[in-house]
């Protein structure tokens, strides 16, 4: 289903974040071509799993958690 968070989608997001220093959810969704609401859900799960973290630089962004 297009509106379900899959392991494949999570991996796509991780790969995307590997290439950038930080991003907004909107940019991730646009660049990997997946509906923003699903990406939001996937990012929430990744944050609960401790894979990504949030950074505040005048606005909030996400990034991969430093190993």
């Amino acid at each position: 289903m297009a509106d379900e968070v899959t392991a494949e989608l999570k991996q796509k997001i991780i790969d995307y974040l590997k290439a950038v220093s930080k991003a907004k959810n909107k940019e991730v969704a646009k660049d990997i071509g997946v509906d923003k609401h699903v990406v939001d859900k996937a990012i929430a799960e990744l944050s609960k799993e401790g894979v990504i973290e949030y950074i505040y630089l005048g606005a909030s962004f996400i990034k991969l958690k430093d190993a």
């Binding site: 929430a44 944050s47 609960k48 401790g50 973290e53 949030y54 950074i55 505040y56 909030s60 996400i62």
Partner: peptide, 8 residues
């Protein structure tokens, strides 16, 4: 960057 796991 400071926060708790799962929250931004």
């Amino acid at each position: 960057i400071v926060g708790v796991t799962g929250y931004g």
